[in-house]
């Protein structure tokens, strides 16, 4: 056989570099900043911009594993409920005299367990889509939170716990640092490791991945478990920030999180997208919300904005590549 010489140098084209979705996000981000600056005099201020992150970064922790889930061509709509359940259990334990340190660990454990159960159900019952599995666990998890706490709210945590949501390291909010650390870790996991490569493979072609020796089931379980764990992390920051918890906290978080991921250019058909896009989208939506909040736009109007943004984000690539949209795919 005559060997043909192939290059192993990656071709780098300028056009390809600038045609990436992330640049679109950067432009949008600038647009949001410009709009906010024009709308409110208070916006363009370092302290303000810095502290705004404290108000929107809590759910960003879930965005990180959700990127993995959507690249797998799955979805998890139970994350809001996992936040509620782990937060409620933590608060309930503390109220019953368990030390806060222990309650905090239990909170993380509960979230992890919830995510693991999601993953296990999805893997064991392949006939069921992740939509229907996480839809039912979404109701179940929040249901347990209601059983535990009825409609009360529990609070009065120790002082040190407030530090999570309100504290600074030097002049930088603790939550921002925590998010940055997690974002780097998840980014490396997705883009630099064999695990991440396999996640992309499964999302693009699960059958071929399996035939190539990728342990599809194991990876799915790990990813959903991570989503549970990060939901619990969100629960910690959110509970600390609010100072109390109740069964209906984090309602609708799944929408925000999915909207951020999809806006970040991660395709719901699976196998495509990058972590940096989702992170840009976190700040884009975060500052958009914050800015609109400054000029007293109601929470309800924000619902509409986020909903439309989600639809917009999924429509744009479909319209560009007309006719290649996922057809006949089960939910």
């Amino acid at each position: 056989m005559e060997p043909r010489v192939l290059t192993s140098k990656k071709p780098l084209t300028l056009k390809g570099f600038f045609l990436q979705w992330e640049w679109m996000l950067v432009l949008l981000f600038i647009a949001v900043i410009v709009m906010n600056v024009n709308l409110s005099d208070y916006f363009w201020d370092y302290n303000n911009l810095r502290d705004a992150t404290m108000s929107f970064l809590d759910k960003a922790f879930i965005v990180l594993p959700m990127v993995f889930i959507i690249i797998l061509a799955d979805i998890d709509i139970s994350v809001g409920s996992i936040v509620a359940l782990s937060s409620v259990i933590m608060a309930d334990l503390y109220a019953h005299g368990v030390p806060m340190e222990l309650a905090l660990i239990v909170c993380l454990a509960v979230g992890t367990l919830c995510g693991y159960i999601n993953g296990l159900l999805i893997v064991k019952f392949k006939e069921l889509s992740s939509v229907i599995v996480t839809l039912s666990t979404m109701i179940i998890y929040r249901g347990i939170a209601y059983i535990l706490l009825k409609d009360q709210s529990v609070g009065k945590f120790p002082k040190w716990f407030n530090y999570l949501g309100w504290g600074y390291v030097g002049s930088i909010p603790f939550i921002l640092i925590a998010f940055a650390v997690f974002a780097v870790l998840f980014g490396i996991l997705l883009h630099k490791t064999t695990f991440g490569r396999k996640v992309y493979a499964i999302g693009s072609n699960p059958t071929a991945s399996r035939y190539s020796g990728v342990q599809v089931d194991r990876i799915k379980i790990i990813v959903f478990t991570l989503a549970g764990l990060m939901s619990a992390v969100t629960a910690l920051f959110l509970t600390s920030r609010m100072g109390s918890t109740r069964p209906n906290i984090a309602t609708g978080y799944e929408l925000d999180v999915i909207a951020m991921v999809v806006l970040g250019g991660i395709s719901t058909a699976g196998g495509k997208g990058r972590m940096i896009g989702a992170i840009l989208a976190v700040f884009l939506i975060g500052y958009l919300r914050y800015g609109l909040g400054l000029i007293n736009i109601s929470a309800q109007t924000l619902l509409i904005v986020i909903g439309l943004l989600l639809i917009f984000a999924v429509s744009v690539p479909k319209l560009k590549w007309k006719g290649t949209g996922a057809k006949g795919k089960a939910v």
């Binding site: 929408l255 999915i258 479909k318 939910v331």
Partner: peptide, 16 residues
């Protein structure tokens, strides 16, 4: 027509 997954389309419009 646009080809959005039903779960995403209805989740978005639910909020709208």
């Amino acid at each position: 027509k646009v080809g959005i997954l039903p779960i995403i389309a209805t989740l978005g419009m639910m909020n709208v």
